[in-house]
C-alpha cells in the first residue's frame, strides 16, 4: 500500500521581490511548475505558484496591491507559465514584467475587464 502523498503539502509566503530567486531554487531542485493562480483577498491579491516533484506539492505565495498589481514574470525559468500569467493578466489585471509570450490582454476575450479584481485601476501601462 502506497502512502498518500497528496496530503503533505506546504504553502509558504514569500516577498514579491524574492520570487525569482525562490523559483530558481525550486527549478534547480528538480521541481516542475504545476499551476499558478491569483485570489482577491480584501484589498490585496495573492498569487499562488504550485510546484511538484515526485508527487509532493509545494506552494509559494506572494502578495500584490490590488489597485496596481505588478509582478515579475517567471517565464524565463518556466516558459510555459505564459498561459497562467496571461490568464491572470486578463482576469485580475496583473502586469507581469518580462513576460515571455505576451498576448496583450487578448488571451481571454471577455466582455468585462478584470472581472476577478473589482479594485483594479487601469494605469498607463501601455
Amino acid at each position: 500500500m502506497t502512502e498518500r502523498k497528496d496530503l503533505t503539502q506546504e504553502i509558504i509566503f514569500i516577498e514579491a521581490g524574492d520570487l525569482l530567486a525562490a523559483v530558481q531554487d525550486l527549478k534547480a531542485a528538480g521541481y516542475r511548475l504545476g499551476q499558478a493562480c491569483a485570489t482577491t483577498v480584501g484589498g490585496e491579491l495573492e498569487v499562488l505558484y504550485t510546484f511538484e516533484k515526485d508527487n509532493i506539492l509545494t506552494n509559494r505565495k506572494i502578495k500584490l496591491d490590488a489597485k496596481h498589481p505588478e509582478a515579475q514574470s517567471i517565464s524565463a525559468i518556466y516558459p510555459y507559465v505564459f498561459i497562467y500569467e496571461n490568464e491572470m493578466h486578463d482576469l485580475f489585471g496583473i502586469t507581469f514584467k518580462n513576460l515571455g509570450l505576451d498576448y496583450g490582454g487578448k488571451f481571454f476575450k471577455i466582455s468585462k475587464e478584470t472581472p476577478w479584481n473589482p479594485l483594479f485601476e487601469k494605469g498607463d501601462e501601455n
Partner: peptide, 8 residues
Amino acid sequence: QDGHGAYG
C-alpha cells in the same frame, strides 16, 4: 501514483 483514492 500519489496514492489518493484507492489507487494506493
